[in-house]
Simulated scan of single mutants.
Amino acid sequence: MSSFHSLPPPATFNVDDRNAAERWREWRERWKCYAVTIELSKKTPEVQVSVLLTVIGPEAHEVSSTFQLSDEDQKDQNAVLAALERYFHLSKNTAFERYHFNIRAQIDGESFDQYVTALRHIAWDCDIANITQEEILRDRIMFGISDDKVRDRLLRERNLTLERTLEICGVSEVSIAQQEEINRVLESKVITVSAKLKDPVGRMKPVTDVHRKLEETDWITDCRFCGKSHRKVKEVCPAWGKRSSMSGATN
């Protein structure tokens, strides 16, 4: 007879895993192999349930304690497993699984058989057999919208309904429109302020102390020394005083 210690048990189950439904299916398969190997069926029903709840880990054990099971079912391993199955099936993010299913493409080095097997595993969590018209519309919206940020927001929603999908997408569109309007107003103000700071030929006005004291009209165009436009102050002319012919001249 096999010993309880002859084979390491499956790792404890993480109930907070984003893909808990998929992980649960994998965990249950490992548990079945483990239970057969240690000949758990030869033990009393109470011991079978006790071993199951010990191996599954404290988090899943705590979840199982919330189930409304009869005294008889609490001592039945299959009844406890069925209750856990229902719990993780209901908590799965079906919308996310369908999105994952629809974008799953064959990857490099993956055979066709491997690809189909992978799709079958994903399809198991998609609950396609029970899909409704509202869910089809919800999924199409989520797959088809152009805003990746909104799609990410939808994928993080558990038990996403069509009504909730429409609400999130509608609010996002209004928010974007409002932000664009705010940006236009701010841009208009920036342009207005910038225009006030520019000189008559479109260049930014100098801001040194000597220049601030001058009036807007104190500009010269086509300076006879440098050929440029600038304030009527000799210090701002790049050519003043640099040629002997200009010695002693002022603007």
Results as ranks from 00 to 15, higher is better:
residue 2 S to W: 00
residue 2 S to L: 04
residue 3 S to M: 07
residue 5 H to Y: 10
residue 5 H to P: 00
residue 10 P to H: 04
residue 11 A to Q: 14
residue 12 T to Y: 00
residue 18 R to S: 14
residue 18 R to T: 13
residue 19 N to F: 12
residue 19 N to R: 11
residue 19 N to P: 03
residue 20 A to L: 10
residue 20 A to D: 05
residue 21 A to S: 14
residue 22 E to L: 14
residue 22 E to F: 14
residue 26 E to C: 06
residue 26 E to I: 11
residue 30 R to K: 11
residue 31 W to S: 03
residue 36 V to F: 01
residue 36 V to K: 08
residue 41 S to V: 01
residue 44 T to F: 06
residue 45 P to A: 00
residue 49 V to D: 02
residue 52 L to D: 01
residue 54 T to D: 05
residue 55 V to S: 03
residue 56 I to M: 10
residue 57 G to E: 01
residue 59 E to T: 09
residue 59 E to V: 05
residue 60 A to N: 02
residue 62 E to N: 12
residue 62 E to I: 03
residue 65 S to A: 11
residue 73 D to I: 01
residue 76 D to F: 00
residue 81 L to D: 00
residue 82 A to Q: 15
residue 82 A to N: 14
residue 83 A to P: 01
residue 83 A to W: 00
residue 84 L to K: 01
residue 87 Y to H: 15
residue 89 H to F: 07
residue 93 N to H: 02
residue 95 A to V: 10
residue 99 Y to R: 04
residue 103 I to C: 01
residue 107 I to W: 06
residue 108 D to Y: 11
residue 108 D to H: 12
residue 108 D to M: 12
residue 113 D to H: 09
residue 114 Q to I: 00
residue 114 Q to N: 11
residue 115 Y to T: 01
residue 117 T to M: 08
residue 118 A to L: 09
residue 119 L to D: 01
residue 120 R to T: 08
residue 125 D to C: 15
residue 125 D to W: 00
residue 126 C to R: 03
residue 126 C to W: 04
residue 129 A to D: 08
residue 129 A to H: 00
residue 129 A to C: 04
residue 130 N to A: 13
residue 131 I to D: 02
residue 131 I to W: 04
residue 131 I to A: 08
residue 133 Q to E: 15
residue 134 E to S: 13
residue 135 E to R: 05
residue 137 L to A: 09
residue 137 L to I: 15
residue 137 L to P: 00
residue 140 R to H: 13
residue 141 I to V: 14
residue 142 M to L: 15
residue 144 G to F: 09
residue 145 I to T: 06
residue 145 I to S: 05
residue 149 K to S: 15
residue 150 V to N: 07
residue 150 V to P: 05
residue 150 V to I: 10
residue 151 R to L: 01
residue 152 D to G: 10
residue 153 R to Y: 07
residue 157 E to L: 07
residue 158 R to N: 14
residue 158 R to E: 13
residue 159 N to G: 02
residue 160 L to R: 06
residue 161 T to L: 03
residue 162 L to S: 04
residue 167 E to Q: 11
residue 171 V to D: 10
residue 177 A to P: 08
residue 179 Q to M: 10
residue 181 E to A: 15
residue 182 I to D: 13
residue 184 R to S: 08
residue 184 R to P: 05
residue 185 V to C: 04
residue 188 S to Y: 05
residue 188 S to F: 03
residue 189 K to H: 13
residue 189 K to Q: 14
residue 191 I to S: 06
residue 192 T to W: 07
residue 194 S to C: 01
residue 196 K to M: 11
residue 197 L to A: 15
residue 197 L to P: 10
residue 201 V to E: 12
residue 205 K to I: 09
residue 219 W to R: 05
residue 221 T to F: 14
residue 221 T to M: 09
residue 225 F to S: 11
residue 225 F to C: 09
residue 227 G to I: 12
residue 228 K to N: 08
residue 229 S to V: 01
residue 229 S to L: 03
residue 230 H to G: 09
residue 231 R to A: 15
residue 231 R to G: 15
residue 231 R to Q: 13
residue 233 V to H: 04
residue 234 K to I: 13
residue 239 A to C: 07
residue 240 W to H: 10
residue 242 K to V: 05
residue 245 S to P: 08
residue 247 S to V: 03
residue 247 S to C: 08
residue 248 G to P: 11
